[in-house]
Amino acid sequence: MQIIFFLLAATALISGIMVVIQVNPVRSALFLVLNFFALAAIYLLANAQFIAAIQIIVYAGAIMVLFLFVIMLLNLRQPEEGGAHRHLGQKIFGSSLATAVIALVIYKVFRMIVPPGKPLTPDFGSTEMVAKSLFTDYLLPFEMTSILLLVAVVGAVILARSKVE
């Protein structure tokens, strides 16, 4: 179990980093797909089958296909090499600070006493259970999410519509 988790976590992290540092947008998008699959497997390990399936169907399936289509339609060129070169001192200072923070966090995390978890209910992670909590305890967040999505859609229309008036 442990080994599988760490393998998946490493895959997710590395593919996440690759998404950011790849120059070619199509490759970036494909690494994002890999990242989504690794995450889905982690959800599965955590007994959340429904969320894992949704992750693959919605994110890795639908959204990434749209992403790839948009990238291909836009026909992005490779950006020219170069751009803003950081000062060497800035690089060293920034990376050493980041390393120090990460070291501190890792040190703290490994010395941490993890509080005992609660035992899972037998139907944990099933579709019924997700639906049940969505429509009882999480009713208000569920409804408010619809406002959030609506706002995002309206925004996309306002910013992208062709010239009016």
Partner: peptide
């Protein structure tokens, strides 16, 4: 968190 997002996204737009 939902509140933060519902507030922020209209303001980005």
């Amino acid at each position: 968190f939902l509140g933060v997002e519902i507030l922020s996204i209209p303001i980005y737009i």
